[in-house]
Design a protein around this nucleic acid. Sequence first.
DNA 1: AAGTAGTCCTGAGTGC
DNA 2: TGCACTCAGGACTACT
Length: 281
Amino acid sequence: MERGWYKEPMPELPEVETVRRGLGQILKDQPAITKIELKRKDLRDPIPVRQVQSLVGAKILSIERRAKYLLLKTSAGTLLSHLGMTGTWRVAPPGDEKDHDHIYLHFSNGLRLAYRDPRRFGCFDFVARDQEQTHPKLKNLGVEPLAKAFTGSDLWQKLRGKETPIKVALMDQKTVVGVGNIYANEALFRAGIRPQTKACKLSRERCERLVGAVKEILAEAIAAGGSSINDYVQASGDSGSFQKSFRVYDREGEMCETCHTRVSAQVLGGRSSFWCPSCQK
DNA sequence: AAGTAGTCCTGAGTGC
DNA sequence: TGCACTCAGGACTACT
């Protein structure tokens, strides 16, 4: 496999947003849930089986996203789905059953959606109508990266006094949600900031540039996914249509495409970090 | 209290 | 070829 290219769609925020749009298209006629098959009672966390089952009969009103969580909203409550590392939703007609299919959602329009997640890093939970702000998985989430509220001065404020590397801070969901390891590396490259720079040392100007880079990269990735929405939520969800190229991620020792300096790597906060020693200061 | 390390899981990749 | 081993990642917990 050519380095710097990803074969499997790894669900970061743009992929989750793409799945949200795909599911929205598929469920736009607001079908009722006729059956929920839970092949197991836990993924990363236990699944609240009784609460989940209480939504049988409810209609899917809309699909929303908060951070990397998908919210399947009904008038009786919300199903919350996190794809973890390897989670996928696909339309699964009769006969389309695979290993690691953990959940089947049946709908009144005859559709069956399958959730497959080999590593089970994802989760599936229930959110009561009045718990959107207080649910344990939702209550501590920071600002959305694409929201107007996420600005350079907002970031600068949050980083004050933080000795931790900027990349670790950027991946902290209390700073901003939805920026995973790949996009944290890529955004820092685009902003010209070394990942190990102490968060509190960034000037307002550099915070501004970093926020801009995060927004640009996420928006570009979402736009790229927009043309392949259907591939994502189809039986052939492994079409590989979501290949992406990276400037530094997973390119240790390769030449930076901008300046031909070799890309460096170091573990920060337990995650692989990559940067160009020449382009990033 | 902020910061670090460990945990979960499986498949892909690597080395002998 | 086949086995043993390492690694990847998000979000959370448990420590210092």
